[in-house]
Amino acid sequence: MDTQTEHPLAIAEAWAEAGRQVAIATVIETWGSAPRPVGSHLVIDDQGDFAGSVSGGCVEGAVISEAAEVIATGTPRMLEFGVADAVAWQVGLSCGGRIRVFLERLG
């Protein structure tokens, strides 16, 4: 089934099999109007390719740039984005929601 092969976690596995380094971002908690539910995934490889989403476009750029460091160090990170946060405003999560994203390297 197409939706199966297109699931971000299936893509992450295929990337890893192809020898690419992969980071997995997961929405852990949301407050207010968050566009993607808890449990949603964005997967990023060491070239900056990505699939899936954690916010429907608002904060993907920031997560992708953090992913390079997580891939390099192997240390997972908890990222938080919300309107109270100046960085979040910069990356455009102006829809009034707040999300916490767990970012880890696929080991």
Binding site: Q4, H7, L9, A10, A12, E13, A16, I24, T26, I28, P76, M78, F102, E104, R105, L106, G107
Partner: peptide, 28 residues
């Protein structure tokens, strides 16, 4: 998460088996 765990999860999904991924948020 290691690759074996990801493979096991994806295999369960393909087989239409319900599964829960349990992640320790401190260690990963």
């Amino acid at each position: 998460m290691d690759r074996a765990t990801l493979s096991a999860l994806n295999a369960a999904r393909r087989a239409r088996m319900a599964a829960v991924l349990v992640s320790d948020l401190d260690s990963g």
